[in-house]
């Protein structure tokens, strides 16, 4: 069937398609950050981790011809940065936000440094999973071609929810995040639990990078993330540190990226700079509406953002 113009129907379709294509990095980074923050530390450096993951996945896929190996290496590269963050952010009197900003500079610097030779060549991409066996409309078929990493993220979200609620390890992470003193009294090593949470979170963020370079947009360049890692950190807050809500919030952000171009493709083309800023405005608005000085946010880890003893 020849492709036909969809006209105005293209706008919601483009947004849905953009959501399915573009939300995987948000999802994986925000799940990683959710785990990290539940243990009581913030990792702003996931922007650098995302770039490092994107670069290493692309490089490995190009050099070995195996995109899946690229995904694993991206996770490992993320863990490497996570170890640095986890160790440094837990030193006495060291502020985790500051370490995060340093890690953004260090991680993205390293990714740009090592990634220079891989900007030009084309690397093998991850396979797509098609959910569109039932339709003949090419636009829908394309919209429903989904990244395996997105599926992975969708599967991890409820698992992580269960992990926090019901598993022994999850309770441990929450205990450390909510009341480190009590956890310490119980003989739990705060350092080890936080380190493990940060490293595991960075692993997920690294994989998020792989989904940028090996699926969508499917290329490595220095501008590939353009702040998505930072956005994902903000997203955790309005998802209330709840993994399943992270999933919904990621879908929202993925869709928001598609709004500007989709509107232009049907002829609405004023204010595109402002449309392009819509995810940021949206996050800020949601934070303003939902936060309140009278109570702590439900789900907020008690020790989050407090100084290290």
């Amino acid at each position: 069937m020849a492709s036909e113009a969809l006209g105005w129907w293209g706008v919601p379709l483009a947004i849905i398609a953009g959501t399915l294509r573009g939300s995987a990095p948000f999802l994986l980074v925000s799940l990683g950050e959710c785990l990290t923050e539940k243990s009581g530390k913030i990792n702003l450096g996931l922007e650098g981790t995302l770039l490092m993951g994107a670069m290493s996945a692309y490089a490995v896929s190009y050099l070995t011809g195996s995109p899946w190996l690229g995904v694993i290496v991206a996770g490992v590269a993320g863990m490497f940065l996570g170890v640095i963050h986890g160790w440094l952010a837990q030193q006495p009197r060291v502020n985790d936000v500051a370490v995060g900003i340093a890690m953004i500079i260090f991680g993205s610097g390293l990714a740009f440094f090592l990634g220079k030779p891989f900007i030009q060549p084309s690397a093998p991409q991850l396979p797509t999973l098609s959910l569109a066996g039932w339709t003949q409309i090419p636009q829908l078929e394309s919209a429903l071609s989904i990244s395996p990493l997105f599926i992975l993220g969708v599967a991890i979200a409820p698992l992580m929810q269960w992990f926090f609620r019901s598993s022994r390890w999850g309770l441990l992470v929450r205990a450390v995040g909510d009341s480190p003193d009590a956890a310490k009294a119980m003989g739990i090593s705060i350092f080890k639990v936080r380190m493990a949470s940060i490293v595991a979170g960075s692993f997920l963020a690294g994989i998020g990078g792989a989904s940028l370079s090996l699926f969508y947009p499917g290329s490595w360049s220095e501008r590939i993330s353009s702040g998505q890692g930072l956005m994902a950190v903000a997203l955790v807050i309005f998802a209330r540190w709840n993994p399943v809500q992270c999933l919904y919030a990621s879908l929202l952000f993925g869709g928001a990226q598609a709004i500007g171009p989709a509107l232009q493709s049907v002829g609405i083309d004023a204010y595109y700079y402002l449309f392009n800023a819509s995810p940021y405005i949206l996050t800020l608005l949601i934070m303003v509406i939902t936060c309140s000085p009278k109570r702590t946010l439900t789900g907020a880890p008690g020790s989050l953002g407090q100084a290290q003893e």
């Binding site: 440094l88 060291v94 370490v99 890690m103 991680g107 610097g109 390293l110 440094f113």
Partner: peptide
Amino acid sequence: ATVMVFQGIVFLSVLY
């Protein structure tokens, strides 16, 4: 990007 790597190292080291 070398300069970025250098900045990152300086920053991390001073924070430590």
